[in-house]
Simulated scan of single mutants.
Amino acid sequence: MSRREASDLACRLGQNAETVCRHYLSNGRRQGNYWLVGDARNTPGRSMFVRLRETRKGRAGKWLDAATGENGDLLDVIREVCGLTGFDDIAEEARRFLGLPHVEQFKLAPRGDKARSGSTEAARRLWAMSQPIAGTIAEAYLRQRRIAVARDLANLRFHPHCYYRPEDHGPTQTWPAMIAAVTDLAGAVTGAQRTWLSPDGSGKAPIGTQRKAMGDLLGHAVRFGRPSEIMAVGEGIETMLSLKSALPHMPMAAALSAAHLAAILFPPSVRRLYIACDKDPAGDGAREQLMRRANQAGIEAVALTPTLGDFNDDLVAFGIVALRAHVRVQLMPEDVARFMSLAA
């Protein structure tokens, strides 16, 4: 693991510091802007402080053990908790947690080789050139859509000058864009979706086609959270992030279109699949086809239906409290107890 890669992984872990602490330092608890635990090996106690937000005192993810004077970042926590010694093993565990692809899956072609437009390689290059969304126009856009920007967003990035080629073959333009990584079940990047944005983040860019996907999409998805026995799938990124605002601890995936939703591949761990439906004929057809495939695979399929066109329409129109109440009555009773109590 190079110094640059270590710095990048530490930064990404820091951007998700509370989620990292809840997973690896489960014997601790949050107090204000810090996570308190006994030490970097997850011993119960209060002598170690992990900073959860960047402040004037330092970056998120940095920690200090007041009892011993030891300090470090969240890569050090992963090393201690998992008992790892090699840098490559630590990096691999960090990538796994963040949902990033393995190094060998993410190798790019030599810079002298031009990636074919719209290919998986072009998607990977665009993803590699993008930056985390924190503090960017992409984050402002999501907040404008009333989406909570808090956790499990490692598969979203931002590009300040993303090329846009008009359908009428006009001159190429550049606009800021939210970049979403499409991944397979192993976490390898197979494609990307670009959502071009207005320069102030108040909405999408005033162009003919405001979003385009590239690469290998069939069966794959933009994933938020690691798959478990219960998860939710749907079409659009904003739709699924709206639902995730109501159910932040439920893993979710956006297939990007009705056709791709109908063909999405099931993670081996899934036993119950919630299907977030858009209220249109294409969404109805995708739901029926996906429910049929899920049932054939021995997976319980449950439809989640919005009041308006999709769940982001509901979130913008009615707010998060009303959205949670609407979703609550559609969940299985055991999932209400599991996910709604955590979201409260």
Rank of each mutant, 00 (worst) to 15 (best):
D8T: 13
C11G: 06
L13C: 13
N16E: 15
N16D: 15
C21V: 10
C21I: 12
H23K: 14
H23T: 13
L25P: 02
S26N: 13
N27D: 05
G28K: 09
R30C: 03
Q31E: 14
G32W: 06
L36K: 14
V37Q: 02
M48W: 08
V50C: 06
V50G: 07
R53K: 12
K57A: 12
G61Y: 12
D65L: 01
A66E: 12
G69N: 05
L74P: 02
L75P: 06
D76I: 00
C82Q: 15
C82W: 01
G83A: 08
G83N: 08
L84S: 08
F87D: 13
A91F: 03
R95H: 10
L98H: 11
L98D: 07
V103D: 14
P110R: 04
P110H: 11
R111M: 03
G112M: 05
K114A: 11
K114V: 15
S117K: 14
T120A: 13
A122T: 03
A122K: 05
R125P: 02
M129P: 00
M129K: 07
G135W: 06
I137H: 02
A140Y: 01
Y141R: 07
R143H: 06
I147P: 02
I147S: 05
D152P: 00
N155R: 12
N155V: 00
H159W: 07
H159K: 05
P160M: 04
R165A: 13
P166I: 12
E167P: 01
Q173N: 07
P176G: 07
P176Q: 10
P176R: 04
A177G: 11
M178P: 08
M178T: 08
M178Q: 14
I179V: 15
A181P: 04
T183C: 12
A188M: 03
V189I: 15
L197V: 02
S202F: 02
G203E: 04
K204A: 01
P206A: 12
G208N: 12
K212W: 07
L217W: 04
H220E: 05
G225D: 09
I230M: 01
E235N: 12
E235M: 09
E235C: 06
M240T: 10
K244G: 03
K244V: 00
S245A: 11
H249F: 04
P251L: 03
A255Y: 03
S257D: 15
A262M: 10
A263G: 01
V270S: 03
R271E: 14
R272I: 14
Y274E: 10
I275A: 01
A286I: 09
E288F: 05
Q296F: 02
G298Q: 09
G298P: 09
I299D: 10
A301R: 05
A303P: 04
L304A: 05
P306I: 14
L315G: 10
A317T: 15
F318W: 13
G319Y: 07
A325H: 13
A325L: 11
V327F: 05
R328D: 13
R328M: 08
V329F: 00
L331R: 13
L331Y: 11
M332N: 04
P333G: 11
P333R: 09
R338V: 00
S341Y: 02
L342N: 08
A343W: 02
